[in-house]
Design a binder for these strands. Sequence first.
DNA 1: CAAAACAAACCGTCAAGCCTGTTTGTAAAT
DNA 2: ATTTACAAACAGGCTTGACGGTTTGTTTTG
Lengths: 221, 221
Amino acid sequence: MAQQPKPRRSQAERSAETRQRLLDAAVTLMHERGLAGTSTNDIAETAGVSRGALTHHFESREELIAAAIEDMLDKVIGELKSYATRVAEGESSSDALIEFLYGVMSDRLFYVTLEYLPEARHNAMFRSRLVPVVSRWHAALDEIWGELTARYGMKPEAGRDLLNATMCLIRGMIAQTILRDDPPYYRRLLDFWKASIRAQLAAARPERGGPRIVTIPLRGQ
Amino acid sequence: MAQQPKPRRSQAERSAETRQRLLDAAVTLMHERGLAGTSTNDIAETAGVSRGALTHHFESREELIAAAIEDMLDKVIGELKSYATRVAEGESSSDALIEFLYGVMSDRLFYVTLEYLPEARHNAMFRSRLVPVVSRWHAALDEIWGELTARYGMKPEAGRDLLNATMCLIRGMIAQTILRDDPPYYRRLLDFWKASIRAQLAAARPERGGPRIVTIPLRGQ
DNA sequence: CAAAACAAACCGTCAAGCCTGTTTGTAAAT
DNA sequence: ATTTACAAACAGGCTTGACGGTTTGTTTTG
């Protein structure tokens, strides 16, 4: 009942906002109802625009979904790059970084990923559409992890192994949460992993040239 | 053009075979075309039976899919139990066991799992329908892994952490293969992990009661 | 600066296709 | 003969992409 919110936005503004509302709605619905449970109708409704507007902005449902995923990933890449500076300045331990990555992935990112992975697997067009963003995402991960391992004088190549293992572990954990609801299980696993990484990083410190010896922290008691 | 294959099978035989053909077709199609790309029509056609036969055996598409998943899992559980005896008799190293698990998961199991995880996440009925089989699957994993860790005198609790990490890593790796086609990446990661597990098991050998020290194998050169 | 011409954004309906579950009918086993 | 297994036709619902029409903003012209 206030004044009508029509401060004469420019075409570009109107267009950008509508487009963004559609992208956000698509990601939200993919997360909440799944890709299969998300029709273009649902997306338009959630975005608060007509289905006509949706078709005006996106050639097909597939293109909208892909654009929404790209948008989501680009935002997360932004968060990552911002966190990376903190890591570079030594303000983040490996423990904190791992928690950060798990947080980012389990917030929405990997659940949404699980929604579209099947489509990506069976639809080559869709998959190629996503490859560039995914590469940017991987590059951002390499970058932030490189900041960490560099501090420990670890060779980039060896560091990347730790990153890949860490990310795959996190992916697997999140997939597992769907059929196994057991928070302590995941807490414990993540703590175990943080300790492993800590040990590996410590072992990389180039102090003596001899064989690398490291104490493995006790787990689970 | 041979003789007609109608040696007067019993009802139970006819029924069981048709049912099995449907289950097999469902799993095959889930793997090849994805869950979303698999209609009951497709399943009946692939199974070589009519859609009427399908509806006769399964109340709904959802029930058929669930039954197919259960069947697939039960078969894999069988393979696992059979391999477990080999482990118990010391005929399998940790390296071999990890390769075996990766092989089982990446053959079809986890790709099919990725197909139905979204449905399981959003459909509570479907999820509860699967929980019992999934529990049996986890129990079989615990059993086979227990055979291994017991040989090293590792406490079951600590051993389970290694199993969970191993399985989650494998899950994450397989999910990753969809958007990143890079066999050396996965080969390297798995080798890295086998070495880690080897070291952890060796460290668990109860020789001295002192702090556990273990050499970390060099990676990547 | 004002009006006209144009372009872009947006809306709502329609038709075609597909898919699932139901119902009705036939063959095979007990 | 009766029950079970299977087959085929049917009906209803949902979804997507297409299209004609309307509103809003931008550019050109007098």
